[in-house]
Design a binder for these strands. Structure first.
Lengths: 209, 190
DNA sequence: GCTTTAAAAAGTAAATT
DNA sequence: AATTTACTTTTCAAAGC
């Protein structure tokens, strides 16, 4: 009986140590990404729920924490790319992506709840690029038209927003280079160029020379 | 009734496990396999490629095999018989016919209609869609067990089915769900 | 869990030219 | 900037770590 009691103590010890480690890792990521407090709290809530449902089994605490951070950002519409999180996490983005899809499935995080409007990405990237409200509105208009014409399905949202901002910048005389928009969106210049070409072609946009 | 007349499916790959019921000395097997690789440190089996029929075989010392890359069940049978003839030359004895189990079939196909995957992901239960990571919607069918990747072009990939019939059945279930949630007839109204 | 093998879909990426 | 090669996703068995 004493042994059982001791092993139970050890188990709860381990559980507490794991939780403490997880929360410190969450703190580290949240502060480096400058995440709002409510996002960090949501990530912590998701993590505790994942632990309660035994979703950590077979996965590293770090990948699950990173996944919870990404999920919290998506749920609360605070745009952060998976790349940004993977940059400061010890686990690669492939592993974080797996954990993210796994907890999303098991915590009932539906595509609807996780959907982040392109507008939110527009504001985030535009902030980093120092673009005006006028350019943002133009980019959103381009994205809306692209969606209506079926040009966005299966495409990287970040790539689409990057191209829309690039075009809007040209149209509103606040040009940013493809390299600059690609960098903030975490996609390559080739992707920006491909999306740019398709949007200009299919939406009949007249780019000033 | 779900209209399947415009749906196409094409076999792209078949994976089968095979039991030859004979222990094999892999060191001797390598010598008679032309394009083969054997590094016990990284993988316990011999990796052997046939050009005709075009398949890849994983040969294990237990006498069990994994045959991949086949486009038909007949290709697998031909490959297994070809390997058996080769093994007989190095003295392997075969008391009974090999047991071949189809484990996985992969199909590419077309539903014949374009899709707004955002709309599909919003209404279709139990599906995954993360365009930042992969351009298709991932849909899992429980019975028969299979997974279908649906792209905006209407092209699909069905994997995990154990027969062509099961693959068609899985696709039929996906179409039934798409229809149920009003995602089928939306041609213009995105 | 991982290792190896095959195959398609469509998007993105990286290395060459 | 065009080509080529390669990786993302899914499935599955084999024997062993």
């Amino acid at each position: 009986r004493l042994r059982k009691w001791q092993s139970r103590l050890r188990v709860s010890d381990a559980a507490e140590r794991n939780l403490a480690f997880a929360l410190s890792e969450l703190d580290r990521i949240a502060s480096q990404l400058k995440l709002p407090r409510h996002v960090e709290e949501e990530a912590a809530r998701l993590y505790r729920e994942a632990v309660r449902k035994g979703l950590i089994r077979g996965r590293s605490i770090e990948s699950v924490i990173a996944a919870c951070v990404y999920a919290a950002c998506r749920l609360l519409k605070v745009p952060r790319t998976l790349d940004e999180i993977a940059d400061i996490s010890r686990v690669d983005k492939k592993e974080i992506g797996r954990s993210f899809r796994f907890i999303a499935r098991n915590l009932n995080l539906t595509p609807k709840k996780l959907f982040v409007k392109p507008t939110d990405y527009v504001n985030k990237f535009a902030d980093e690029l120092g673009l005006s409200e006028k350019v943002r509105r133009r980019a959103v208009k381009i994205l809306d038209e692209a969606y209506e014409k079926g040009l966005t399905s299966g495409k990287s949202p970040a790539g689409l927003v990057a191209a829309a901002l690039y075009i809007a910048g040209l149209l509103e005389d606040e040009k940013r280079t493809q390299r600059e928009v690609a960098e903030v969106a975490r996609v390559t210049e080739v992707t920006v160029r491909n999306r740019y070409k398709e949007l200009v072609d299919k939406l009949n946009l007249k780019i000033p020379v | 009734m779900v209209d399947m007349s415009n749906v196409k499916l094409r076999i792209e790959n078949i994976v089968a496990s095979v039991d030859l019921f004979t222990q094999l000395n892999l060191e001797r097997v390598i010598e008679i396999c032309p394009n083969s690789k054997y590094n016990p440190e990284e993988f316990p089996g011999i990796i052997c490629r046939f050009e005709e029929p075009k398949v890849a075989l994983l040969i294990f010392s237990s006498g069990k095999l994994v045959v991949t890359g086949a486009k038909s069940v007949e290709d697998i049978e031909r490959a297994v018989n070809k390997l058996i003839q080769m093994l007989k030359k190095i003295g392997a004895k075969f008391q009974r016919a090999p047991q071949i189990d189809i484990q996985n079939m992969v199909f590419s196909g077309d539903i014949g209609m374009e899709f707004n995957l955002d709309a599909v992901a919003l209404s279709l239960p139990n599906c995954e869609y993360e365009p930042e990571q992969f351009p298709g919607v991932i849909y899992r069918v429980k019975e028969p067990r299979a997974v279908i990747l649906l792209f905006s072009s209407g092209k699909i990939v069905c994997s995990g089915a154990k027969s062509e019939h099961d693959a068609w059945e899985a696709v039929r279930k996906l179409l039934r769900e798409l229809e149920k949630y009003g995602l089928i007839e939306e041609e213009e109204e995105w």
